[in-house]
């Protein structure tokens, strides 16, 4: 085969634009539009009682990022219907990653989607949790031999709770929420800090499969 042309994203190339007064402005979007500061580790509060209280609040008010991948996203909508009603447990959907705490990877992740998932994950703020649904995120599931579907999610981002099944029913997802709550209340759900500590490893794994890495390393 002939060698493949490298595709360059036109929105992210360095370019010169003409300003309103006729002056030339050089725009390098990766430098100018993103901040490439690396993630920091945030220690929990010293006083145990505050940390416990905050962890309780975090556990009782889980805001889920509306990010659906694979077949599991269709299992998430029944959670909000009268039959399952996840609002009872303080679970709410947020449309923007800035306000969300929990990211649900709902099923198989192709490499193309993984890139978007990582971007969304990194935009979430520090106490952040990941819940992975289905056997696809655990060991690849029925897509274990696929050329563009990842096998293990925990190599690319720290996962707090796995919900097994293909696909898990909404009851199983509710049970997953309960397990996550227990984990948060015990102070074990430190995924964000884990990500910051092992940033090099995660990033190396991500870059191994995402070949056209045209974004900054960490885009909070």
């Amino acid at each position: 085969m002939e060698d493949k042309k490298t595709f360059i994203d036109p929105d992210l190339t360095k370019r010169t634009v003409i300003g309103p007064n006729g002056e030339d402005i050089t725009v390098d979007p990766i430098q100018d539009y993103f901040c490439d500061a690396l993630p920091k580790k945030h220690e929990p509060k010293r006083a145990k009682i505050f940390e416990n209280f905050f962890n309780w609040a975090r556990a009782e008010s889980i805001w889920v990022l509306g990010f659906g991948t694979g077949c599991g996203s269709i299992e998430l909508y029944p959670l909000l219907t009268p039959r399952f009603d996840a609002y009872r447990f303080g679970v709410q959907m947020r449309p923007t990653p800035r306000q969300a705490n929990l990211m649900i990877i709902s099923g198989y992740l192709s490499v193309k989607t993984l890139k978007r998932a990582i971007r969304s994950y990194e935009q979430m703020q520090n106490p952040k949790f990941v819940m992975a649904l289905g056997s696809c995120t655990i060991n690849g599931g029925m897509y274990f031999d696929s050329y563009n579907t990842i096998n293990r999610l925990d190599k690319y981002m720290p996962v707090d709770v796995y919900v097994a099944g293909c696909m898990p029913r909404p009851e199983a997802i509710l049970a997953g929420f309960e397990a996550l709550k227990k984990r948060i209340k015990a102070g074990k759900a430190e995924g964000a800090n884990l990500y910051a500590e092992n940033f090099e490893t995660y990033k190396a794994n991500q870059k191994k499969i995402i070949r056209d890495w045209n974004m900054p390393d960490y885009n909070w």
């Binding site: 655990i138 060991n139 690849g140 990842i150 096998n151 293990r152 191994k208 499969i209």
Partner: peptide
């Protein structure tokens, strides 16, 4: 194209599957 071989080399197959 051997997709199983590629997947085993590229992704991280969980042992025991």
């Amino acid at each position: 194209f051997d997709t199983l071989k590629y997947a085993n080399e590229t992704f991280f197959p969980r042992p025991g599957r």
